[in-house]
Design a protein around this nucleic acid. Sequence first.
DNA 1: GATTTATGGTAAT
DNA 2: TTACCCTAAATCT
Length: 299
Amino acid sequence: MPEGHTIHRLAAALTARLGGHEVRASSPQGRFAEEAAVIDGARVRRVSAHGKHLFVEYAGRGAPVVHVHLGLGGRVVVGDTAAPAPRGAIRLRLETADAFADVRAPTVCELIDPARQRALIARLGPDLLARSPDPATARRRVSRSRVAIGALLLDQKLFAGVGNAYRSELLFRCGFSPWMPGSEVGADGFDRLWEEARRLLADGRRTGRVATVDRADLPRGQRRSAGRHLPPEDEASGSAVARARARETYVYKRADLPCRRCGSVVRTALQAGRDVYWCPTCQPGPADPSSARTDGAVG
DNA sequence: GATTTATGGTAAT
DNA sequence: TTACCCTAAATCT
């Protein structure tokens, strides 16, 4: 689930509930027990995000920071009640008298110092959800790279916060084949990708969903719900929600279905280790490597 | 009940 | 490029 928009949304939700409070910390699952004891009862200053990384910051100079990365399957369940009895594996539970946050299945959950936090952020590229992220480095590196733009978009050193769903949707909306080398995208093309990434991620942060289809491109019956905010309680689970989400993208997860714009069959292939989706008509450009390889090997 | 999948990232190769 | 990591939810049988 979590691309940058989810993490920023979480940071805001957690700051609102925990910021300024002395917060109980525990590890019902046990794997974060020692660390939780260190911060148990400490006052949370705020919860911040950079790209897909989440930081729980505590009051006081040099105070430790909880660093969380949710990876693929991780999630944070937020509630506005006293914390219920733990169910399942909860790596970290933060709670006040009337709110709680459960961190489940993160790939990273660690206690670090502020210097380490700064180092982590420095290692990442500009966060597309920051107030005014600087595109200069990414623009230069993309323009000089022979690597396909679809692979470059997943590089967190260039585009912190972009994940697999937004990659395909961004490329569709800007009309680029995922297989076009970065060097052929052009300065203007880069700028369009950059601005589109900022816009889509900001929409996602606002609404809680990766809904990238313009109203005009939806069937009439679906236009009414487009852009509606997702209630937080629906965010965590439910196959109905998952199905609804699958109808909110141009190409992501739509292999073999018709393109919403032109009706061509949406294609998919592995790129940079992840499934990328694209419309061969709306996104003209180099043929993907699999078709090229077939030509060469079989011909 | 078992298996697969996931909007991620790293380390080894 | 591949293997692997954690876990929950979706998908299978």
